[in-house]
């Protein structure tokens, strides 16, 4: 498809999605909201982890920091400034994590991100109990579901746009090369550490913003609510199902899985995490490269 045509089509779809809350019941706006949130999360996650193959298990650490920043600052600062602060804190945290682990082999990064959410959750709890003497905070912002939805939709579109732009730039080429062979990439003139760090910070900042925008949904926030490890897990599984190496992959994975999870969590609230885990193992087994690659594979085999 020609690029201008694809853009026109994307704009039409986006407009239709933006208009949807005016015509559908509130419940479905809520579903759309959650789904859009995960599309943004999975796409932002894949931005860094897809091409470099550095599996980040810390999605919820950034997501939670975003939400919690809003909880702390929503009565102190005007909303746009609160979002700016959240993004800044997320970026700074990503910079520290990245600087300390991205120079080393990929496995150190995975291990570090694995416990990061728990670390941040415990540290925030400790701070609240011992320093500010508050546990749990209220978010009073004049937003209804659709307002949050529109913000998330805009963020998801921006995330996809960033992902598209990077994929076409020399940065995208460099990332793929780094995922294949860091030594060769470095000898071709690529500053491997700097590029990894840059992408990780961009990805983490977007994830932080998703958390910040969603914060008003909860009204009441405490660390155990916003640092729920299931968020990291669902993001990962969605991106993998769709294919983390492709622009549309995370979206293709996020939409059906979100609907499935929504149904599962209502139908089997007690066994949700077991089903989630089994599904995840199945996906790793059957579609290591994601649905899109699988489809291409099948189409390729269909040809003589």
């Amino acid at each position: 498809m020609k690029t201008p045509l694809a853009f026109a089509l994307a704009a039409v779809v986006l407009a239709a999605l933006a208009a949807a809350p005016l015509f559908i019941p509130d419940y479905w706006t809520g579903v759309l909201l959650g789904m859009t949130g995960y599309v943004a999360l999975a796409t932002a996650w894949a931005l860094f982890s897809g091409p470099t193959r550095y599996v980040s298990l810390a999605t919820v650490a950034f997501f939670g920091v975003g939400a919690y920043t809003v909880a702390v600052l929503n009565e102190v600062l005007p909303y746009p400034l609160v979002l700016l602060c959240a993004g800044g804190i997320g970026a700074a945290m990503a910079l520290v994590v990245g600087l300390s682990t991205l120079r080393l082999a990929g496995v150190y990064f995975v291990i570090f991100t694995f416990g990061l959410a728990e670390l941040v959750r415990q540290t925030v709890s400790w701070w609240e109990v011992n320093v500010t003497y508050t546990m749990g905070r209220y978010v009073f912002l004049p937003f209804e579901g659709r307002h949050i939805y529109w913000q998330l939709l805009a963020l998801a579109a921006v995330t996809l746009l960033i992902s598209w732009a990077i994929g076409r730039s020399r940065l995208g080429l460099a990332l793929k090369a780094i995922g294949d062979d860091e030594t060769v990439a470095a000898h071709a003139g690529i500053n491997v550490t700097r590029i990894k760090l840059m992408l990780f910070v961009i990805s983490a900042t977007l994830i932080t913003l998703v958390g910040a925008i969603q914060a008003p949904r909860w009204t009441y926030i405490e660390p155990s609510i916003v640092f729920n490890p299931t968020v990291s897990f669902m993001t990962l599984i969605m991106a993998l199902l769709g294919g983390a190496m492709r622009l549309w992959g995370p979206l293709v994975g996020a939409v059906p899985l979100f609907l499935l999870f929504e149904w599962l969590s209502v139908s089997f609230p007690d066994h949700f995490s077991i089903i989630l885990g089994l599904l995840f193992i199945l996906i790793v087994f059957v579609m290591p490269q994601g649905v899109l690659a699988k489809l291409e594979d099948l189409r390729g085999r269909g040809k003589p």
Partner: peptide, 20 residues
């Protein structure tokens, strides 16, 4: 050491994009 996820042309373009 070829880079398998890149095409032959992209392998070469990499050095052009990040070389001198």
């Amino acid at each position: 050491r070829p880079l398998p996820t890149l095409t032959v042309g992209e392998n070469v373009m990499l050095s052009l994009a990040f070389g001198k």
